[in-house]
Write a protein that binds this DNA or RNA. Structure first.
Length: 436
DNA sequence: TGGTCGTTGGATAT
DNA sequence: ATATCCAACGACCA
């Protein structure tokens, strides 16, 4: 084909950086010109890092300050949609359609409920129009006020999968929001506004790009070293939606069936798996999300797991989401739980968030026996969360003492000490029961 | 070096 | 609905 120039979008993820590097080197050796501009994000991550003296900013506010208005935001760049030129002469090759699931080697699974979100650019633009048609909704948007239990009509735009796959340009999205904000008298501001959400995306892309080993705890300079518990049983219970906490399990079922949950719902299950209750390594939860989310994005997924596990960005480990009361605030009747966990449908609202407290007569009437039809809680939240706080306290102390550089030995020794304490507590508990 | 502040906790008091 | 406490962290900035 006599290729003389190769154009591809800049990708900040380490996996693609390595591939793109090889491609660029090969092209250089064969005198093929390469053009790889930044266009997936609003800003150039390298540019922000340069402005900050070589290190990525670690707080949202400092990022926003460094970032400023995007260079193209005030220009009259069209917000129209453009198309790629049609395919020219490609000789004997042909352009084929998107392969089907069967052609990719998978079977179509007989699911009772699948994701309501369809892929593609046409769908993305339709969704964007629908979300932005309500100017008042856009200008009053405050992310933390959204309802995580809303599923018939989600509290957010659900544009994340389209942004991730490039069905929707973040810059086009930015321009559209900017247009609305100029049209109205008052509007919310970052970090809570709709525009602020796009800046969060760029913030996390920047930190992820500028931090070696961003996707793991070891050798990650911004990640607290914490002796997470190795417990595959607890991990499996969480992953398979059988923790015994309906709010947590319903969210995990939504993840499995829809590949999408509200941001705050993700917070609840991530906190529960890591620093809040189970004390399982955030990398394990990250892997599950990466596999099951339709919007899983390397930079953003890892950043949020670092955040929720109090390993980086956020350190107030005393603030733990209650697997009982948090969901109840939004959905006292438990409609969300009843939808995703139909086995609990007959449980009255008084017990829907804590079915193990329901008297046997109530369980029988609801045709749902706890321990048989739906599991008993894998841990007791009040006890587990207190232990987690204590363990985080000790781990933080170790990180402070070692100036952030914790050796494998030190971490292992703390892990042993914690396990010993746990065993001692259990002995104490058994003794108490015997005395009774 | 010390003060400020951080998108989204929970329980309790008013 | 709003304030206060709980117990307390660290990045940033003056």
């Amino acid at each position: 084909w006599n290729v003389r120039k190769l154009c591809f979008e800049f990708d900040s993820e380490p996996y693609y950086q390595a591939i793109d590097d090889k491609v660029k080197k090969f092209c250089a050796s064969t005198s093929v010109e390469t053009f790889s501009p930044v266009s997936h994000t609003i800003y150039d991550p390298a540019d922000i890092i340069r402005k900050n003296g070589g290190k990525p900013p670690l707080t949202y506010q400092s990022f926003v300050k460094l970032a400023g208005e995007p260079s193209w935001a005030s220009s009259s760049v069209s917000t129209g949609v453009t198309w790629l030129p049609t395919v020219g002469n490609i000789g004997r090759c042909s352009v084929i359609d998107v392969p089907s699931i069967e052609e990719l080697g998978y079977e179509e699974l007989p699911e009772d409920e699948t994701t309501p979100f369809k892929g593609g650019e046409t769908e993305a633009l339709k969704r964007l129009r629908t979300s932005l048609s309500d100017q008042e909704w856009v200008s009053k948007f405050e992310k933390p006020k959204g309802d995580p239990s809303a599923f018939l009509s989600p509290a957010t735009t659900v544009l994340s999968p389209y942004l991730k796959f490039g069905c929707l340009s973040s810059r086009y999205f930015y321009k559209c929001i900017q247009g609305i904000q100029r049209n109205v008298k008052r509007h919310t501001s970052p970090p809570v506004s709709l525009l602020g959400q796009l800046l969060w995306r760029d913030f996390f892309y920047t930190v992820a790009f500028g931090t070696p080993n961003f996707d793991r705890m070891k050798e990650n300079r911004i990640c607290k070293q914490i002796p997470w518990r190795n417990d595959d049983e607890l991990l499996a219970a969480w992953r398979e939606a059988r923790t015994g906490y309906p709010w947590i399990d319903a969210i995990m079922v939504q993840l499995r069936k829809w590949g999408w949950m509200h941001h705050l719902a993700r917070h609840c299950v991530a906190c529960f798996l890591t620093r809040g209750d189970l004390f399982v390594h955030w990398e394990k939860g990250r892997d599950v999300f990466e596999r099951l989310l339709i919007d899983s994005d390397w930079s953003i997924n890892n950043a949020n797991w670092l955040w929720l596990s109090c390993s980086s960005f956020f350190y107030q480990y005393n603030r733990i989401y209650s697997p009982i009361s948090f969901g109840k605030k939004y959905d006292p009747n438990g409609n969300y739980i009843r939808h995703f966990l139909p086995v609990l449908k007959g449980i009255p609202k008084e017990y829907i968030y804590e079915p193990w407290r329901a008297p046997m007569s109530v369980q029988v009437k609801a045709k749902c026996i706890i321990g048989k039809d739906y599991p008993k809680p894998v841990i007791e939240h009040d006890v587990a969360s207190k232990e987690c706080k204590q363990m985080l306290h000790q781990a933080y102390e170790l990180n402070r003492r070692s100036n952030g550089i914790v050796s494998v030995e030190e971490l292992e020794s703390l892990r042993r000490r914690m396990e010993d304490e746990e065993d001692a507590d259990q002995q104490q508990c058994l003794k108490g029961k015997r005395l009774k």
